[in-house]
Design a binder for these strands. Structure first.
Lengths: 240, 240
DNA sequence: CGCGGGTTTGATCCCAGTCAAGTCCCGTGG
DNA sequence: CCACGGGACTTGACTGGGATCAAACCCGCG
């Protein structure tokens, strides 16, 4: 575990896409840096994407809007994530990416992707690996939305988020991790109404608590039990 | 549009992963063929995968089982899909892939993936593209499970499946496409109970009907309206 | 004929959505 | 200093969509 040169956070294998060596390359590959203020969008659903990004710091959310105007959060994005890759490859995004806290992102040109695959197969493999890992995770989200009730969803989500941010080294002295989302965002992510989201959070309060831009989990295994999750530890990315 | 040498079905750009030239290569790359009878599983959740596959013919479903025993279908798999790629890359699958009708699949060795990225970047790019396309689609499923009600989910799903199979050239003389799933499978895919799935199907009966292993859609735009979907046509895969 | 898997239908219940008020908090301006 | 307003969070009352339970029904099969 080493400090990362581009991203100020410490990297964990599963959660940071690139190793140090890869990062040196990606620095050469990158086309610029982007900053977003809370509420600003990086791209909108329907956009043709000419760039994709890695998140250096800050958090946001990726959502779709249904024809009837309702919003569904697809996933939250954290430092180390890649954003907009699938939209870049398929030509058009499905989703809007909006910042929840101030974000810094590293921008890469779509036009250099062929280069990447032609001349830097280890990095190309790394990119593919990340896409696969995200697909893996989206499958978990589908299971949650399809088969878990409100309490289970909430417990599952809070635990997932907490573990992820903890692995990024973002836990502060009190054991809390940054959580810039509103309850309405959580509601849109879990497919619940705002009111019920609030009531469900209240029911979980002995185990976990959000407020003041922070998420605090005091009983992780209690959450895991309520969320029907195995408390899994991150897995190592297999090398090429 | 040409008959495909490996897969007996005709290929459409979005829905068939490989072009003719690419297929010639993949034939050299492949490690064997697998056949499954209905009900048989190709791999189980928790397996370490040493192979991934392309579906040559037949249909199946990919599901996870929650700790409480409930099943959630993540997606249906159709000819032309890639199966088990994300599990192969990340090392372990989340999901079980089970055949619904007799399936033929083409098997590829995980051990040859580095080869693919090292020496055949166009194909590596194609594989990545497919992973991205699937991610795109999983996002749509998440929006459906999170924000659509039973009628909308059902209409959306039937239309999606129909369009997909139609694009594969699987529509018969009566305009029906093969649909080997039970109502219980649909229920598990849409996050509904079996009973409610049945009642919802009944409500849609003037527009679409399943039975006898077939799905028949008589009013696609009616379905699109009820399903809150834009009736989108498949998009071309951009070349490297 | 009986059996079993899948489908259909009705009755009842409850989780979560909706509506409607409040509360808390913070920033702005008189 | 307080009044005001707006955004996020909270709480209560009511409603309804979908789950659950239960019982037929249909049909291919031994």
């Amino acid at each position: 575990m080493h400090p990362c040169k581009v991203c100020p956070l410490r990297a964990t294998p599963l959660f940071h896409p690139f190793s140090e060596g890869e990062l040196n390359f990606m620095i050469g590959f990158r086309a610029g840096e982007v900053r977003l203020e809370p509420g600003e969008a990086l791209f909108h659903e329907g956009d043709r994407l000419e760039h994709f990004y890695t998140v250096l710091s800050g958090q946001g959310g990726r959502y779709t809007t249904l024809p009837n105007g309702e919003r569904q959060m697809v996933n939250f994005v954290f430092p180390g994530d890649i954003a907009g890759l699938s939209g870049t490859l398929t030509g058009e995004t499905n989703t809007t990416l909006q910042a929840a806290s101030p974000m810094r992102l590293c921008r890469f040109d779509r036009s250099r992707l062929p280069d990447l695959f032609r001349s830097h197969h280890e990095r190309a493999y790394a990119v593919t690996w990340i896409a696969a890992a995200e697909e893996h995770f989206l499958g978990e989200i589908i299971a949650t939305l399809g088969r878990r009730n409100a309490l289970q969803r909430m417990a599952w989500a809070l635990l997932r988020i907490y573990v992820r941010l903890e692995a990024l080294g973002l836990r502060d002295a009190q054991g809390a991790v940054p959580f810039p989302y509103r309850q309405a965002d959580l509601a849109d992510a879990l497919g619940l109404s705002l009111v019920h989201t609030n009531k469900t959070l209240a029911r979980l309060r002995p185990l976990a608590r959000i407020g003041g831009g922070k998420l605090m989990v005091s009983d992780g295994s209690g959450l895991a039990e309520k969320g029907l999750t195995d408390f899994e530890m991150p897995r190592q990315r297999p090398l090429l």
